Structure formats: C-alpha cells, structure tokens
Amino acid sequence: MITFELLEYNNGRYVYSFSPDIDPRAKGKVAIYDNGNREVLEQSSVDVKQYYAGHALWGISVGEKTGTVAWC
C-alpha cells in the first residue's frame, strides 16, 4: 500500500510524492501527464525493484490530490 499527495501541477504535468507502507519516511516521486505519459522522478530508498513506484504510476488517477493505493 502507498499513500500519495499532489505536490505540484504545471503545464499538464502532475508531480506526486508517495510513501510506501513499510516506511512512510522513504518517499518517492512520480510524474503523471495529461497526455498519459508517466515517469519515476525519485526512487524511494526501500523500493529497490520499483514495486511501489509502479503502483504509484498506475494506481494514481491524474488530478487526484491525495489518497491511498492498495492492492491484494
């Protein structure tokens, strides 16, 4: 599970900070664009295989301000 918050929006680019449930202090950042592109901007130190970053990239709907992404 991750929690996320929108840090900034500029010219169709949403930048989100995400926190993995295993260490909420180990934040990462992703960018999601209005045109559908997505990228990891900053890795979380506990996310060695980009597992949490992947859930942030595909679990956050563009435009959301805060929330949680959970999976089974």
Rank of each mutant, 00 (worst) to 15 (best):
H55G: 05
G54W: 01
G12R: 00
H55V: 01
V69H: 12
E8A: 15
V48H: 10
G67H: 08
G54L: 07
G12L: 01
R25D: 13
L6C: 12
R13L: 10
D21G: 01
P24Y: 04
Y52R: 00
G67D: 05
S19E: 14
T66V: 06
E5N: 07
Q50M: 13
I60P: 00
C72H: 04
I2R: 07
E64W: 06
S45D: 08
N10Y: 08
D47H: 10
S45A: 09
Q43K: 10
Q50V: 04
K49N: 11
R25V: 02
V30C: 01
A53M: 11
Q43Y: 03
I22V: 15
N10S: 13
L41G: 00
K49R: 12
V69W: 05
W71I: 05
K65N: 04
D34M: 04
V40G: 02
I22Y: 08
I2G: 04
N10E: 15
F4T: 02
A70E: 11
Y16A: 09
M1P: 14
G63Y: 09
E39R: 10
V48N: 09
R25I: 07
Y33R: 10
A70N: 05
V30I: 15
R13K: 15
G59V: 06
Y33F: 15
A26L: 05
R38T: 14
Q50G: 03
E64H: 10
G67W: 07
S19I: 03
Y51F: 09
E42Y: 00
Y33C: 09
A53D: 06
T3E: 14
S17N: 10
Y33T: 09
C72Q: 05
E5H: 01
T3I: 13
K27H: 11
E5R: 12
N35F: 02
D21I: 00
S61H: 08
A26S: 15
Y33E: 09
D34A: 14
S44G: 08
A70I: 04
L6Y: 06
D34C: 04
A31W: 03
Y16T: 02
P20E: 13
K29E: 14
Q50C: 04
Y51E: 03
I22L: 13
I2M: 12
D23Y: 07
N10L: 07
Y9F: 15
F4P: 02
M1K: 12
A56V: 14
V30Y: 00
Y9M: 07
L6S: 08
I2S: 06
L7P: 03
K27M: 10
S61F: 09
A56W: 10
K49G: 02
S44M: 04
A31C: 08
G67S: 05
D21K: 02
I2Y: 06
K27Q: 09
V69C: 08
Y16M: 11
F4W: 05
G36W: 12
E39N: 10
V46P: 08
V62K: 14
S61V: 15
R25L: 11
V48L: 10
N35S: 08
C72D: 11
I22S: 13
Y14K: 02
V15K: 04
K27R: 14
L6G: 03
R38D: 08
D23E: 14
V46K: 01
K65M: 04
R13N: 14
F4H: 03
D34R: 12
A26D: 07
